[in-house]
Computed example of a mutant assay.
Amino acid sequence: MKKFLTFLLILILLLGGGALYGWNYYNGVGEQPLKTEEETILVTVEPNDNFSSVLNRLDNEGLLKNLLVTRIYFRYHPKETKLKPGTYTVHAQGTLHEIIEELNTGKDINEIVVTLPEGLNVERMGEVFEEKGMFTKDAFVNAVANYPTPTWLENLEGRRYAMEGFLFPSTYKFKRGQTPEYIVDYLYRAFVSQMNSIASELGTSIPTSKWNEVLTIAAMIEREAANTEEMPVISSVIYNRMAANMKLQIDATVVYALGLNAKDHVTLEDLKVNSPYNTYLNKGLPLGPIASPGAAAIKAALRPAQNTGYLYYVLNPATDSHFFTANYNEFLQKKAEYANN
């Protein structure tokens, strides 16, 4: 009897000790599920991945202490997962919940945020991508030049780039390694989407046959206007001058014809440059857009300010806004006044 009691006591102690060990092991996996001495590791989330498939991949890579115990811990200690495709840096000594949070909110190490401001031309866009380290300016320009011309875009002879103006400016999140061909296609699709969105917002239709004309006007507005508020007024000047059979005489078209940067000063000699984009020499609109306009400029091209009568404008450097007038002598007076200030 005494031997049996001793055996029973030992059994109880063993079972209790095993349970305690199991409990501690279970919590230990939850507190530190990864099996590595590294401080951080990279975890990749593939498209259509859920957290279970991420755990499977970590286990296959030998980075989990125990897949089954990790799953059980996650089941009884759930945390919302909001996984996005990408590659993320996580703290390898963190808890399961900390790792999930890093995957939920972390920054993809291969993600590159690219801001293309309104009013850039193709070559300036290429410089932005080169500065971001995605690919060279020349690679982007070549991708633009070789992009299949949309069927709605006609009369291409003499254009610098057929796709100039039709690559929508915005802030984008791209992936390292994406090709310039992919990016050009993405920017064009963004432009098409934006045109449809603007048409819906304005409650109108914008036939593709009008897109080149609208974007050509919008690009001049984008490059000439000092702010978005005066864009519809700039637009009205362009339409008023065309209605009066006057040359548009838009400095920004000369800048484009010369291939200068936006801040370069245009001289009287520059105004003589022989180019179909030079609106000082040629009546009517240039061949196509001189830059990629934003939504505000496109809307201004579609909805110019009404009944302004304005034919001239000149920048007031003191206010960084334009003075508008229908009187040529008043325009000359203000131009001299601002030049002397």
Rank of each mutant, 00 (worst) to 15 (best):
F191M: 01
T136Q: 06
N121R: 15
Y88S: 11
T136M: 05
W152Q: 06
E111C: 07
K175N: 12
T151H: 12
E181H: 02
M125C: 11
L96K: 04
K137T: 08
E157S: 14
P207V: 06
G119S: 10
I198V: 12
L153Q: 03
L202H: 14
V184L: 03
K84E: 12
P169H: 03
R189P: 00
P117T: 06
V122T: 13
F166Q: 06
P180W: 01
K175S: 13
V122N: 01
F166P: 02
Y186M: 12
M195T: 01
E111N: 08
N146S: 14
Y188T: 01
E118Y: 07
T81F: 08
G158H: 03
V113S: 13
E102K: 09
A92W: 08
T171E: 05
R159H: 05
T179Y: 11
G158I: 08
K137D: 04
V144L: 01
Y88I: 12
H91R: 13
S200C: 02
K79Q: 14
S200P: 00
S200R: 12
H91T: 13
T136P: 10
P207F: 08
L96H: 03
G86D: 09
I72W: 14
F168Y: 15
T89W: 09
I183S: 03
A143V: 04
A92S: 14
K175E: 12
Y88T: 11
E101I: 07
Y172P: 02
N155H: 14
E123N: 03
T105G: 00
T105H: 06
G177T: 05
Y147H: 13
P78A: 08
H91F: 12
R75A: 11
V113N: 03
I206D: 09
E123S: 03
R189M: 03
D108Q: 00
E130M: 04
T105A: 11
M163D: 00
M134D: 05
E101H: 11
R160Y: 14
E201L: 10
E101T: 13
T208G: 00
F74G: 05
S197Y: 15
I112M: 03
P169S: 04
Q194V: 00
R71F: 09
V90P: 09
H77S: 09
T87K: 13
R189S: 08
E118I: 10
N121F: 01
E118C: 09
M134H: 06
A162G: 02
R159N: 01
Q194S: 13
D185M: 02
I109Y: 05
G133L: 10
E80F: 13
K84F: 10
T81L: 09
G126E: 06
T70E: 10
T105W: 00
N142S: 13
E101V: 08
A143W: 03
R75L: 11
Y76K: 12
N196H: 13
F140Q: 01
E123Y: 02
H77G: 09
L156G: 01
N196M: 07
A92F: 02
F174A: 01
T136E: 00
S200N: 14
V113K: 15
N110A: 05
V113E: 11
P169N: 05
P207A: 07
T151E: 15
E123I: 03
G158W: 04
H77C: 08
L83R: 09
L120V: 07
G94A: 15
L167D: 00
A139Q: 15
N104M: 05
M125H: 11
R160F: 14
P150I: 07
G119R: 09
T208E: 15
E80S: 11
